[in-house]
Design a protein around this nucleic acid. Sequence first.
DNA 1: TGCCAGGCCGGGT
DNA 2: ACCCGGCATGGC
Length: 225
Amino acid sequence: MRTDEKIRLFFPAMLSAYGPQGWWPAETPFEVVIGAILTQNTNWKNVEQAIANLKREGLLDAAALAAVADERLAEVIRPAGYYRLKAKRLKNFIRLLTDEFGGDLDALFALRTAALRERVLGVTGIGPETADSIVLYAAGRPVFVVDAYTARLFYRHGMIEGDATYEDIQSLIQGALADDVALFQECHALLVEVGKRHCKKRAAECGGCPLKKFLEEGQPVREMW
DNA sequence: TGCCAGGCCGGGT
DNA sequence: ACCCGGCATGGC
């Protein structure tokens, strides 16, 4: 089976197993941006605490974040880990927003998709995954988010080589799926869910992974779970 | 109790 | 152009 065919089959398979994920877990686009930066290599549970702290302190707001001192911000987001680093990264984004878009997220999001992605990617501390999370979940543009779970799943299922880059994987997926925001959002969220359950970093094998059964044993989707 | 989490940067080779 | 150490808390 061709890789793009497998990709097209993953989605309904995962969806039937776990149901719609309804990502991103946030109340506003601004909160999505903050969460995207805070969750870098970090458990979402930790990020939830940090965001709750930000809300309590009235800091989930561009003007408030622009005004707060780095050291105080760092303490507030401490549960998210790498807190001194992330305080700077949040401020870097806020600086872009404030200096070039009047602190208005909608003004930034008025850019065309490619320009928006490049602009966000230009912020120090925002790499491809964080930028694409912002573009897909906060701005609602059809850009696929590639994360560590996705890369690991695809690699272990022999769908990519070990040296595949972020852009390689992104192109592979976007070439296989229809250009659709809701589809990209659900599909990425589901890949993370499958990854959490069945494709952890040092897992000895892919034992129990439903996608393995599907790909290597030809088990019909309907009987996978 | 270690290992891991929805990465990314910067300096060294 | 790669390679690698650093960044850090909380959950299981």
